[in-house]
Design a protein around this nucleic acid. Structure first.
Lengths: 210, 210, 210, 210
DNA sequence: GATGAATGAGAATTCATTCAT
DNA sequence: TATGAATGAATTCTCATTCAT
């Protein structure tokens, strides 16, 4: 008797979770298609096949919805990057792994990446300082790897670590942006392997001590 | 008699031009301060000390206003970049000059750069495909320099020119973004000379044939 | 066998009654704290520790809930006032007793009185004509006492009984309102005895035949 | 030439003022008919024959609109009451004049009085403490007159001035409420003269020193 | 009976844009 | 040309009420 009750409860929980996920998925589709500003909650509700009051039960506002979508992906990425930074590889390989992780993140879910690139970024000011720090997290980690590489004698100490960090991150970000916006000159080609190789060839190698 | 008329006409023209300029300047200040979405035409009109109906006489819409602001700066930059590409330097020096031009462009007018970085860039979907091509112009030119360098035997032909272009452009763009948004790890420091040097050290050198 | 069944049934009834009472009590607290308009059913359900669907099982709507709360107290008061009017005292003492009953009603349950004063009273239009008549009941009774006093030669027949009724009722009501809203000049002091005395001194005495 | 310009400007000013007034009048009608809560800005705009954005140009919100309507009337009343209190009559005549002013205020504009009675009062909590003080202003003034009467030896010093104030004010307010809501036992009859006389007979006389 | 997820009508408010003067 | 009053479409969010479990 007890067991059955628990089962029923659990199943209900699951169904709710599914519904939340359905809204999340629908939002992603809608945001990705029309952009944050042009998306209406009504569109999302329709896409998810729920009443739009329900969107507000799960997410308190349109902003929160965007942030939640973003956090899910971003936290995963940051965690991954952090794990790489905390790993046993040398600084050089860490950077390569970070690049790989970021590229794969896009390959895995291009719509999400698109959304992050286009909307979260642009709306930084709406979300306030707190959010910016979240977005800067990968930069912090990369900077730390850069300095580690210099300390260990692997990277050239004459290189400005801050700028190198920004260059590295910007290069990767732009590649992803190019993919996301289908920009010249990357139009059409999402080749993670090549991107990794080129980052290595053009960027990472040159960090080494001459 | 004729001459006087012409003079009067000319002076009037000038006064109008001045007013248009005033609106343009005001828009830049307002957009830069609050971002495009949060800026109201009323704010701009107030800042420019004109009635807001007047904004519509000179610019057809808020979008046009942003685009026009953007075009002014962007066209200047594109022209400069194009001039560099068409010049007599070798490909390597051309890239360095392009980086320098872009950095200086920011140093000259940080607000404008901010605006471009934050708003134009991220509003691409609103402005439509046509705008994207304008924004890609520098990429086209840089790509062309890359290929020229490879053809001339200066750059390594094994490097993927498209990706190298994106990496180069992304790195510069991210540095400017970092300055504009006062982002970690560049917060506070706008050092054009150092940025140029690091781009050379980390990026451009590695393009050369080994 | 029969008896046990009845007992079980009775106990269940009681439990239900208790739950209804809990909702009623909670509503009172919530309405009193935030006012009718700003109170949400969810607040009440939370305060009562029940699901909010349950509120609808016992009360058909938010309006009904307010009315039911109100009726409980109001009916008690009206009954009391009616009993006084039907009693053996002379008209003069009846009025004093009515004033006392009203003041005590507030002293006994200030929150309820507050609610009546602030919300029921001012929501009359929402509740419709039927409700107004309920609210006018005490006025009817007081008017009747007034006329009785005049007929018996105790009160001055030149006084307009209607106006005197309204004056008497309004005075008492305002005193209670002052207490309920903590209004100047009664702020802080709830002195039923003094209020009774002053009503006698200022109002009731002057009704007598000169 | 100058003069004509000024004239044009002035006429425009007048037309604007008229429009604001038209909105104010329409609001009063709508609020009075349906009550504040049930009135929609759209109703008011329609009644005033303007677009509803315009309502927001003149009044920043629905609340402000109600408050502005209220203030216009209330300030007039308070000023009148204050003038009476500051006048040369003795305290007794001052009270009578205050009662008269309040009654006339209703007779002059019953809809307004209705609105004040039903909505401003009820929404006191929405408008916050500051508003309450405005509403208490007449009470302050009356209390002052009461005390003046006692000091001058005209009124019985054994009477509690605070309570007497509340009784006096409550009586008048209830009479007006009765008229406004067409309540028993005053239904139908708005007789300012009789009301004045009765307040004198039943209330004011009894304040005097025995 | 009890729960709380789901529904969706409803209203306030904003602001780009138009237009009469 | 210049003004700023006027317009009203568009959209978010709330919350009483219903209903499946």
């Amino acid at each position: 008797m007890e067991r059955r009750k628990r089962l029923v409860k659990q199943r209900r929980q699951e169904r709710l979770q599914q519904k939340k996920q359905r809204i999340l998925d629908a939002s992603l589709r809608v945001f990705a298609a029309k952009g944050y500003q042009l998306s209406r909650i009504a569109d999302i509700a329709k896409e998810a096949n729920v009443a739009y009051g329900l969107v507000y039960r799960y997410f308190n506002s349109k902003d929160r919805l965007l942030m939640e979508i973003f956090r899910l992906e971003w936290d995963r990425l940051v965690k991954e990057v952090k794990a790489i930074a905390d790993g046993n590889q040398n600084a050089r390989d860490k950077l390569l792994s970070v690049a790989g992780a970021m590229f794969n993140s896009f390959a895995r879910d291009p719509k999400m990446a698109s959304l992050v690139v286009r909307d979260v970024y642009r709306n930084i000011q709406i979300f306030g300082r707190e959010r910016i720090e979240i977005m800067e997290e990968p930069l912090r980690i990369i900077a730390q790897v850069m300095r580690e590489g210099q300390k260990k004698g692997l990277f050239d100490p004459d290189i400005d670590a801050s700028l190198a960090t920004v260059i590295f991150y910007g290069a990767i970000d732009q590649i992803i942006t190019g993919w996301a916006l289908n920009m010249f000159p990357l139009a059409g080609a999402v080749n993670v392997e090549l991107a990794r190789k080129m980052v290595e060839r053009v960027l990472v190698n040159s960090l080494e001590k001459p």
